[in-house]
Structure formats: C-alpha cells, structure tokens
C-alpha cells in the first residue's frame, strides 16, 4: 500500500528553483533510498513532507499525499498531529536533534504527551522500553544531550521516532556524521525497528554502500531533479543515467584502502 506519494513537487525561493518536478512514492514496509550529492535537493524534499521548510523557500507546485490526505494544503496544527506519530524524522546532525538544555527523557516525554493521553507512569514505561529497544541504559533518560555520544544520541533520536510506530520514517542522512562502525550499528537498529513496525522508510544519503544493504528501491537525484528511479537490483546492475553510473563507480571497494580512507575523510568533513 502506498503510504507517501510526492507528485511533481517544485520548490523555489523568489529567484531560484531548488527542486523541480520531483515524483516519488513510498509504500508501507518499503525502504526507498533517495541518493545524490549534497545540494541536489534531497533534504529539501524531505523537509517539505513535514512542512519544515523555513524562510524564503516555498513550495511552488505539486502535491504530497500521505494516505489519502494532502500534506501541503494541510493546516499546521493538523500536520503537527501527524508529525512524530505517523511521520517521524531522524536528522543528520545528532547534536541538533535535541534541545541542549532539556534532558533527553523530558523531550521524549514531551512527544508522548503531545500525541497520546497516557498517564505519566505509562509514558515512562513506553519511553524506557523504547530506549531499551535501541540498546541504551535507563540512565540515558535523565541525561542531557551534551552528556551522550553521537551514536547514543542518534539512537535516542531513533527511539523517539519509532516509539509510536509511525507508518513513515524520514531518515535524512542519519549516519553521515557518525564513524562507520557506529553508523553500521545505528542502521541495523533502524532497519530492525522499521521492519517490526512495517514502516515505510525514506532514506536520504549520498553513500551507496548503505543503500546496497538496506534499500528496496532507489531514486537518484541531481540538481533538484530525479534522474533515475528503479528497484535496487535494476539500478545496481543496469544503471541508465550517466550520473548514476558515476555514482556507482565511486563506491569504494572493501579491499581498496586508499579510496576507503578518502571516502572516510569526506564523511568527516561535513
């Protein structure tokens, strides 16, 4: 069943078109990877779904439907009821995932309080359970964000996103800022939880290694447009667009240490 459908979405500022005619869909249980270099408009597309664009950037045309509801014309208040419950986000920068002066637990509880009518006790149970699901200790609940490591924070972010079993998870480069071992653990957890909830995932990345492992379908984006879409098998075995081909070529081979190091360097210098 199609959860999310983006049709001919165009996003622009007053003097520049940033995303043009993007069409994309995510079905429940499906893992769709949106691939492309930074600045290609992937993140903008992702932010638009939750109405999170800021400042001068606006949707010019197109539609985004979630289930049978149009998200673009939806009132902010109504959209807020979906965000964090039906549609969840995990962002790249783990340092900015949580407000620095509130404890992690308080911020998890805030989400539960916003979206449910559960008692304090019930909420605490759910929160601790969610932390356990991502293999974190209960003490994390009382910590402030600055006391946790990047990997821990990103796991808290995943726990927060998944605890209400959303039907769509938007993961905007969730591992780019992490080292590769931590990134691996985080993605394993993410895919496990998404599978359990039968949740559709829109996974935004520029790293095709992760795509190869988890994605079911791939959309390749360049300069604000989707240049190629297809199943993982099709894209990896028979790429059509020259840009896709060059991306595939850039995947570092495991035994090639030099390119691997260069790749890591790129990751670090975000």
């Amino acid at each position: 069943m199609i959860m999310l459908k983006i049709s001919e979405l165009t996003i622009a500022t007053t003097n520049e078109t940033l995303v043009k005619d993007v069409t994309l869909s995510v079905a429940s249980g499906e893992w769709v990877a949106l691939v492309g270099e930074s600045g290609s408009g992937k993140s903008l597309t992702a932010l638009t779904i939750g109405g999170l664009l800021s400042g001068q950037v606006k949707v010019e045309s197109g539609s985004i439907t979630f289930g049978d509801r149009d998200l673009i014309s939806m009132k902010r208040k109504e959209l807020s009821r979906l965000l964090g419950k039906e549609i969840s986000y995990v962002f790249q920068d783990y340092n900015s995932a949580f407000t620095p002066f509130l404890s992690v637990g308080k911020q998890i509880d805030e989400v539960l309080r916003t979206h449910t009518k559960w008692s304090r006790h019930e909420r605490l149970g759910i929160a601790l359970n969610a932390l356990k699901d991502v293999k974190l200790q209960e003490s994390v609940y009382r910590s402030y964000p600055c006391q946790l490591s990047g990997g821990q924070l990103q796991r808290v972010a995943i726990a927060t996103s998944m605890m209400l079993s959303p039907s769509l998870l938007i993961a905007d480069e969730p591992t780019t800022a992490l080292d590769s071992i931590t990134a691996h653990h985080v993605l394993e957890l993410l895919s496990k939880l998404a599978n359990e909830a039968n949740c559709g995932v829109l996974f935004i990345t520029h790293d095709l290694r992760h795509v190869k492992k988890y994605a079911t379908r791939i959309a390749v984006m360049k300069d604000g447009q989707i240049v190629e879409t297809g199943t993982k098998e099709k894209i990896f075995t028979n790429p059509q667009h020259p840009y896709t081909k060059s991306l595939l070529k850039a995947i570092p081979k495991l035994n090639d240490h030099r390119t691997r190091l260069i790749g890591l360097e790129k990751e670090v210098s975000w």
Partner: peptide, 27 residues
C-alpha cells in the same frame, strides 16, 4: 528560530506554543 534543534522539535509534532516557550524562548 534558526537552530536545527527547533526544527527537530517541530518535526516531533510539538505544538507551536510548546516549541516557542519551552525550546526557542528559553534558548
């Protein structure tokens, strides 16, 4: 308002009032 954690708070569906008073204003 320009901080990423404010966007993250909005993305969790918190009400405008809550985002303003508990997160942005205090910051």
């Amino acid at each position: 308002f320009g901080q990423d954690f404010i966007r993250a708070a909005k993305a969790r569906g918190l009400s405008r009032k809550r985002v303003f008073f508990h997160h942005a204003f205090r910051h």
